[in-house]
Design a protein around this nucleic acid. Structure first.
Length: 891
DNA sequence: AATTTCACG
DNA sequence: ACGTACGTGAAATTA
C-alpha cells in the first residue's frame, strides 16, 4: 500500500447539489444578481464564495467537482420513474450552469461528468481510489452521500444555506442515526426517497426504518425473519413491497466502480489563472470578488477599471461656475465613523454627471454660493442619508432645504432585508457597480482613514454622488409600483427631518445625580460580592456565566435547569427556579440587577454626555424589519422603568432649562387596537369602542365570566399574556412557558380566545396565506416586509416566517401611526409658536420638554395630534403625564 | 467576533 | 415528530 502523505488531501464537491443550494441561498435577491448581459449570477456568486471558503478551510492538494451528465443514467434504465417527479431546474439556474466550468477552470480545479452516471458515482469511485493514498472530504447538499463515509472519507452535508455543514464520519453517523454507512443504504431502501422518486416500502418512513434496522441489522436479515413478525399492517407492507424495497436499495447504492476516464492524478490542483479569474469576475460583475483579489491581480483589475467620470476640486475660483444654474444635484458628505453628532466630515462632493466637484475644505460649505444653493427650496438635492446630512450641515450652521431624494430611505422601504448603510454595497445590489464601498476606500478598525491621495477621496465621493443621481429614477419608479410613494413622500422623508431636530435637541442629563447613584451602587455591589464569595467559599467573577455555572452546578450541586451552547444557563429564568434551593441565588439576582444598572445605564450614560450636558442619540430609521425606529449611542428606548431601583435612573433625565418640565404621552394598547382594526373583529372592536379594559375583557371571555367584577388579578395577568401572545404569533408551548401553565391549558386558552374573537383567528390564517402567495406582508401604510422563508421546507424557518407574517403588520402599523403623529406634532408645535420641544420617541410614547406654563397646552394638543394621526375603526387612546424629571412623569 | 445576559416596547 | 413567542441595543466574558 502506498505511503499516505500527511499533506495531501482530496476534496470532492457535488457540483449540481451545491449549485442548487447556492441558487436558493440567494433566491430572494435573484433580480439583484444579474450581469450586463442580463444573465442571472446568484448561484455563481455564492458558489465562488463557497469555493474560496472551502479552499481556505480545507486546503486540499487535490480537488474535483463532479456534475450530473444528463437526464438519463443507468438508474433510469433500472427504474423509469427515477427522479421522475423532480420539478424542472429553474431557467434562472440553468442559464448559469455552463459558467461553472469556466469558473473552475480559472480556479485551476478539475471538474468531470460522465454519461449514464450521476455526480454521486463519480465521487464514490474517486473516494475509493483515494483510499490509502490520501484523506478525502466530500461536500454536498445531499445526505445520501453519507454512505461513503469511512475512516478515510468525511462527508460534509450543508445544513442550511451553504456555509453551515454537518461533518459525517462513521462515528457521527452512528451517533446521529445509529447506522453504519452500509446500513444507510438499507435505510433508503426501506423508506424510499421522495425527491428521487423511488418508493421503498409503503408506510415506512425514517422512524420505522431505523427501528427495523436497529433490530435486524440489514434489509436482507430483516426479510429472512419477516415471517416471525407478528401480524400487522407493517408486516403485510414489507412482504408486498419486497421487490420494490430491493430495487430502491439498488437505486440508492452509489456506484464506486464507475468507468471514469479521470484518475486521482488528474485531480491535482493547478495554479489559479488570475487573468481568467479577473475576466470572469468582470463578466459576472462581481465587484466585491475583484476587490478581494491579491495585490498583483488587484492592480491588473484596476487597470481595466471603472469608467471615467468628470470630477474636479472645488475652489473659491470655480465656486460660482459650479453652482451657476438652478438644477437637481446630488450631494455627499462623508465621515469615517457612524456618529455624525461628534465627528468632523472628511470631505464632500456635489454636482451632476456632467461635472462633479469635491473638497475637504468644509469652510467652502459656508460660503454664500453654497449656502444659497443648499437653502433654496426650488433646487432638489439628492442624498444618501438625509438625516445625517441635515445634522452635519446644521452643526456647520448651514441650513438645507429640499432633499427630495434619499437613496438610503428609498431602498429601505423597497426591501428591509437587503438594505445597507454603505452606499457602495447598496449600489452594487442595484447593479450599479461604478462605486466602491467605504470599507474598500477607508479601511476598517485602527486602519480606517481617509485616503492619503486627495484625488482618490475626490473620486470616491464623486462616484457616490453619481450613484445616487443615477439610481434615483429606478428607485422612485419601484416605490410607485409598490404603491409606496406616499409612505416615502409623506412619512419617511419628512420624518427624517423631524428626527434630525430631535437628535440635535438632545436631552439633558443630571450627571451629578448619576454619579451619586454610581457611588451608592458601588457600595452595594461590594457588600453583595462579599456575601456571594462567602456562600461560594471562594472569590470568582460573578459576571462570568461560565464561572458562575461552575460554582452553582458543580460546587454547590444545584439542579441543572437549562443548558446553552457553551454550558449551563444562569439566566434569571433559571435562577428564579433555584431561589429556594440556596441563599446565594437571591444575592446573585440582586447583584446582576445592580451591576446591569451600574454598567449599562450609569457608566454607559456618563460616557456619552456631550459638553452641552446632553445626550444626543441617533435614531436608526432604516434598520428594523418592521418599520420601528431603533436608538443607539446611547439607546434611549430601553431606559429602565419596570423595577423601582432601575426606574430611578430616569431622575437623571431633566429639562434643559430651570422652570421647565418633562412631558410625555403614550398610546394605550396601540398594537391590540391595530389588531382590532385590521382583523375587523367585532367583539374586540366593541371592547375598545366601549372603553373596556381589554385584558379584563379578554379574561372574561376566555374564562367564561359574566361580570368584570369576577375577574381576579391573576386571570387578568393570564389574559394579558394571551393578548400579547396573539400579537407575537402564538403557540401553546410559548404561552404555557410564559405564564407557567400546562401546555394543554394554554391550548384551551387559545381555542377559547379564537372562539371569542373569531375574526382575529381569520385574520391570522388569512395573513399567513397571503404571505405564502405574494411573498410579503404590508402595514396600513404599505410598508413591506418580504418573507422569503414562508414556504421553506424547514419547519423552524417556516414557522418563524409565519409568526412574523402575523406580527409585522401589527407592530409595523403601530410604527406607521406614531411616525405620522411625530410629523404632525412637530409642525403643530411650530404653528402654535411653542417653546416646547419633542425630544424622544419610545415606540408608543413621545417625550417633550416645555416651560411649565406650556404644559396645559401640551396636555391638550399632544393627545389630540396623536389620536388623530390616522383614522381607524376604533378610537386611539392617549395618556399623558408631566414632572420635574422623566421619573416624575406619572400618568 | 461570538455568546450570554438583560434593559425596553 | 418536531421545537417555538415579536421587535430592538449594550456590556461583559470568552474564544
Amino acid at each position: 500500500m502506498a505511503q499516505t502523505d500527511q499533506n495531501e488531501k482530496l476534496l470532492l464537491l457535488d457540483g449540481n447539489s451545491l449549485a442548487f443550494r447556492a441558487f436558493f441561498a440567494l433566491h430572494n435577491s435573484l433580480d439583484r444578481f444579474t450581469n450586463q448581459e442580463g444573465l442571472h449570477t446568484n448561484a455563481l456568486y455564492t458558489f465562488s464564495n463557497m469555493l474560496d471558503s472551502l479552499l481556505a478551510s480545507e486546503q486540499p492538494t487535490h480537488m474535483l467537482v463532479a456534475f450530473d451528465a444528463g437526464k438519463t443514467t443507468f438508474r433510469t434504465k433500472m427504474f423509469d420513474d427515477y427522479k421522475g417527479t423532480r420539478s424542472k431546474t429553474p431557467a434562472e439556474l440553468s442559464e448559469q450552469m455552463p459558467y461553472f466550468n469556466k469558473l473552475l477552470d480559472a480556479y485551476g480545479i478539475a471538474h468531470y461528468q460522465l454519461a449514464d452516471y450521476e455526480a454521486d458515482d463519480i465521487i464514490g469511485t474517486l473516494a475509493k481510489e483515494a483510499n490509502g493514498e490520501m484523506p478525502v472530504v466530500v461536500v454536498t447538499g445531499d445526505r445520501d452521500l453519507t454512505q461513503l463515509t469511512s475512516d478515510n472519507t468525511t462527508v460534509k452535508v450543508t445544513v442550511k444555506g451553504v456555509n453551515d455543514v454537518e461533518a459525517y464520519t462513521p462515528e457521527h453517523l452512528q451517533e446521529k442515526l445509529g447506522l453504519t454507512p452500509t446500513q444507510f443504504i438499507d435505510l433508503k431502501g426501506l423508506m424510499g426517497d421522495n425527491s428521487d422518486n423511488y418508493p421503498g416500502v409503503t408506510k415506512v418512513g425514517e422512524k420505522t426504518a431505523l427501528k427495523l434496522l436497529d433490530e435486524y441489522g440489514s434489509m436482507e436479515n430483516l426479510y429472512e425473519h419477516v415471517d416471525e413478525l407478528k401480524k400487522s399492517k407493517l408486516k403485510e407492507n414489507l412482504i408486498n413491497d419486497k421487490d420494490q424495497a430491493f430495487l430502491s436499495k439498488q437505486l440508492a447504492t452509489i456506484n464506486t466502480d464507475a468507468p471514469l476516464t479521470v484518475s486521482l492524478t488528474d485531480t491535482k490542483r493547478q495554479e489559479p489563472d488570475q487573468a481568467a479569474l479577473i475576466r470572469f469576475y468582470q463578466q459576472m460583475n462581481f465587484q466585491s470578488k475583484l476587490a478581494k483579489l491579491p495585490q498583483a491581480a488587484g492592480e491588473e483589475a484596476s487597470a481595466v477599471k471603472m469608467p471615467e467620470i468628470n470630477f474636479t476640486e472645488l475652489t473659491k475660483a470655480n465656486l460660482e461656475v459650479a453652482l451657476a444654474q438652478k438644477m437637481q444635484r446630488s450631494l455627499v458628505i462623508d465621515i469615517l465613523g457612524d456618529n455624525y453628532h461628534v465627528e468632523t466630515p472628511i470631505g464632500f462632493a456635489f454636482g451632476t454627471p456632467d461635472q462633479w466637484y469635491y473638497s475637504d475644505d468644509l469652510s467652502l460649505l459656508t460660503t454664500a454660493e453654497v449656502t444659497q444653493w443648499l437653502n433654496d427650496p426650488e433646487q432638489e438635492k439628492d442624498v444618501f442619508d438625509s438625516k445625517k446630512t441635515k445634522v452635519l450641515l446644521t452643526r456647520l450652521e448651514v441650513p438645507i432645504e429640499n432633499m427630495s431624494f434619499d437613496l438610503l430611505l428609498a431602498s429601505y422601504l423597497l426591501d428591509t432585508n437587503d438594505n445597507s448603510n454603505d452606499l457602495g454595497v447598496l449600489a452594487q445590489q442595484y447593479g450599479y457597480t461604478d462605486v466602491q464601498t467605504d470599507l474598500d476606500v477607508y479601511g476598517k478598525g485602527v486602519k480606517r482613514a481617509a485616503p492619503t491621495d486627495y484625488h482618490e477621496l475626490g473620486e470616491h465621493l464623486s462616484r457616490k454622488a453619481q450613484a445616487i443621481y443615477q439610481l434615483r429614477p429606478q428607485l422612485l419608479k419601484q416605490l410607485q409600483e409598490n404603491d409606496q410613494d406616499q409612505l416615502y413622500d409623506e412619512i419617511e422623508a419628512p420624518l427624517a427631518m423631524v428626527l434630525a431636530q430631535m437628535e440635535l435637541a438632545g436631552i439633558t442629563i443630571d450627571s451629578q445625580r448619576l454619579k451619586q447613584m454610581q457611588a451608592d451602587f458601588s457600595q452595594t455591589l461590594v457588600d453583595i460580592e462579599a456575601l456571594i464569595y462567602e456562600d461560594a467559599g471562594h472569590e470568582f467573577n460573578i459576571n462570568s456565566p461560565k464561572q458562575l455555572g461552575t460554582v452553582l452546578f458543580e460546587e454547590l450541586h444545584l439542579p441543572i435547569i437549562k443548558k446553552n451552547k457553551t454550558g449551563y444557563s444562569t439566566s434569571v429564568e433559571v435562577l428564579e427556579q433555584l431561589q429556594s434551593a440556596h441563599p446565594i441565588i437571591d444575592r446573585i439576582l440582586t447583584y446582576r440587577q445592580i451591576s446591569k444598572l451600574q454598567s449599562t445605564y450609569i457608566n454607559g450614560l456618563l460616557k456619552v454626555i456631550h459638553p452641552d450636558h446632553k445626550v444626543h442619540t441617533r435614531y436608526l430609521q432604516t434598520l428594523t424589519q418592521t418599520g420601528r425606529l431603533s436608538s443607539v449611542d446611547p439607546n434611549l428606548q430601553n431606559i429602565p422603568v419596570r423595577l423601582p431601583e432601575g426606574r430611578k435612573i430616569r431622575q437623571a433625565f431633566v429639562p434643559s432649562h430651570p422652570d421647565w418640565e418633562i412631558f410625555s404621552s403614550d398610546y394605550s394598547q396601540v398594537e391590540l387596537r391595530v389588531l382590532a382594526h385590521v382583523s375587523g373583529d367585532e367583539n374586540m372592536q366593541a371592547a375598545f369602542k366601549r372603553g373596556f379594559d381589554i385584558h379584563a375583557n379578554t379574561a372574561m371571555k376566555i374564562f367564561g365570566l359574566d361580570d368584570p367584577s369576577e375577574v381576579t388579578p391573576d386571570m387578568r395577568r393570564q389574559a394579558k399574556a394571551t393578548n400579547f401572545g396573539i400579537v407575537y404569533g402564538i403557540s401553546d408551548y410559548g404561552l404555557s412557558k410564559n405564564i407557567g401553565i400546562s401546555r394543554k391549558q394554554a391550548a384551551t386558552f387559545i381555542a377559547a380566545y379564537f372562539e371569542q374573537y373569531p375574526d382575529v383567528k381569520k385574520y391570522i390564517d388569512d395573513i399567513v396565506a397571503l404571505a405564502e402567495k405574494q411573498g410579503y406582508v404590508e402595514t396600513i401604510m404599505h410598508r413591506r416586509r418580504y418573507l422569503p422563508e414562508i414556504n421553506s421546507k424547514n419547519y423552524n424557518l417556516r414557522s418563524f416566517a409565519e409568526r412574523t407574517a402575523m406580527n409585522t403588520p401589527i407592530q409595523g402599523s403601530a410604527a406607521d401611526i406614531i411616525k405620522v403623529a411625530m410629523i404632525n406634532m412637530q409642525s403643530r408645535l411650530q404653528k402654535e409658536n411653542l417653546q416646547a420641544k419633542m425630544l424622544l420617541q419610545v415606540h408608543d410614547e413621545l417625550i417633550f420638554e416645555a416651560p411649565t406654563e406650556e404644559i396645559p397646552i401640551l396636555e391638550k394638543i399632544v393627545p389630540e395630534v396623536m389620536d388623530s394621526a390616522v383614522s381607524l375603526d376604533i378610537p386611539l387612546v392617549v395618556e399623558s403625564g408631566h414632572g420635574k424629571t422623566w421619573y416624575d412623569v406619572k400618568k
